[in-house]
Amino acid sequence: MRIDAHQHFWKYNPQKHQWINEDMKVIQKNFLPDDLIPLLSQHQLDGCVAVQADESFYETAFLIDLAEEFKEIKAVVGWADLGSDALDKDLDQFSKHKKLKGYREVLQDKPVEYMLRKEFIRGIEKIGRRGYTYDILIFPNQLEATLHFLKRSPEQPFVIDHLAKPNIKLGIWREWKKELAPIAEREYVSCKLSGMVTEADWKTWKPHDFENYMEIVLEAFGPKRLMFGSDWPVCLVAAGYEQVFELVDRFTDKLSPSEKKLIMGENAVDFYGIKE
């Protein structure tokens, strides 16, 4: 099965989606499954993983409803406040929905110590016992704290979103590589080949700008722990779906056919427990 392991849907609301600023005007509108499905079909992708873009229970319910309506949505990564004392109750309300496979918070907007709180670690343990995954959305300056956090949760399946957002625009990679390496050594951590174009110069990027970054994560995580993700529609501020797909598709052409299949879908199927 070929899967886009990372994309979003929303009904655009200027108040709720304040992070979509004027520089991102192209995505200040609704993006729904009917917009994505033709793109999946065009690139011979069987489905997608819909990931939260708003921190609310409405967001989780919204994505679940879409997943129940559209067979192409194979998995949902929702939102929950993992540090909440009411977490068990919050998780219970969505527990019957089989396509809900994991959770994510927007850690990149939070202090580095946020993920080291005992309440947060407790929340990770609770979702782990229920069989959920966790997507880690961070910037490079949070990698050190992330390593300490990961050491406290050694049996939880994690995936690093967007390569931890290295500064591709300025070509900065050495410190990012150094701090990513011990994270990649942990077999329970995967990484998504996603979100790269938005970390480059939106108007002048070239395909070779991403080669070094993809080589680094391939060497660090190996083909068994990498997943292709488009980050559509956020990617549209810098590139079309076809351009984003081709970056990873062409990069993985140098691998064996079986390794390429892993990155282009099979790893996502295994990680998220996709059944159909």
Rank of each mutant, 00 (worst) to 15 (best):
G78R: 01
I127K: 10
R117K: 12
G273K: 09
S190I: 03
L180Y: 00
E179Q: 15
Q156I: 13
F94D: 08
A200I: 11
V248C: 14
L82P: 12
N21C: 00
V244L: 04
I3M: 02
Y12K: 00
E22C: 03
A61T: 11
K98P: 03
A200K: 12
N267C: 13
H6V: 12
M196R: 10
R250A: 14
D270N: 15
R225N: 08
Y58I: 13
A239C: 10
L137I: 04
I216Y: 02
P140E: 09
I121W: 05
Y114W: 06
A5P: 14
G222F: 10
V189R: 04
E68Y: 06
L40H: 10
H162N: 07
G78T: 06
K165I: 05
L116K: 02
K126V: 13
P154R: 08
C235P: 01
A238P: 12
D46Q: 14
F149H: 11
I274K: 08
E187L: 01
V49F: 14
P233W: 13
T198H: 06
I138C: 07
M214W: 00
M115C: 10
W232E: 11
F158I: 11
H43N: 14
V248G: 05
M115F: 02
H97I: 10
F245P: 02
F221W: 01
V269A: 13
K275W: 02
I27E: 01
D35M: 07
E199D: 10
H8Y: 03
R130G: 09
V77G: 00
A238T: 10
A181K: 12
G240R: 15
D34E: 15
W79N: 00
R122G: 10
P38W: 09
G47V: 14
I73Y: 03
I3R: 05
D161I: 04
Y213V: 04
E59L: 06
D54S: 12
Y58C: 13
L147H: 08
K118L: 13
C235H: 03
E59Y: 06
V237H: 01
G102A: 04
E187G: 01
F228G: 00
K192C: 07
G273M: 10
R2D: 12
D35N: 15
G123I: 09
A164C: 14
G171E: 03
E211C: 09
G273F: 06
Y134E: 07
L226K: 05
P207V: 04
M24P: 03
T252K: 06
A220T: 09
N13T: 05
S41K: 14
F228Q: 01
P157T: 07
V49G: 14
P166E: 05
F271D: 06
A181H: 11
K151A: 13
L262V: 02
E215P: 01
Q156K: 06
F251D: 04
T204S: 08
V77R: 00
L143W: 02
N167E: 12
F139M: 15
N267T: 13
L150A: 15
E55K: 01
E113I: 14
Q243I: 04
D34Y: 04
I73E: 03
Q28V: 03
F251S: 07
L63H: 12
L143N: 09
G229R: 00
G195A: 08
L116T: 03
L39Q: 10
L107F: 03
Q243G: 03
E119T: 15
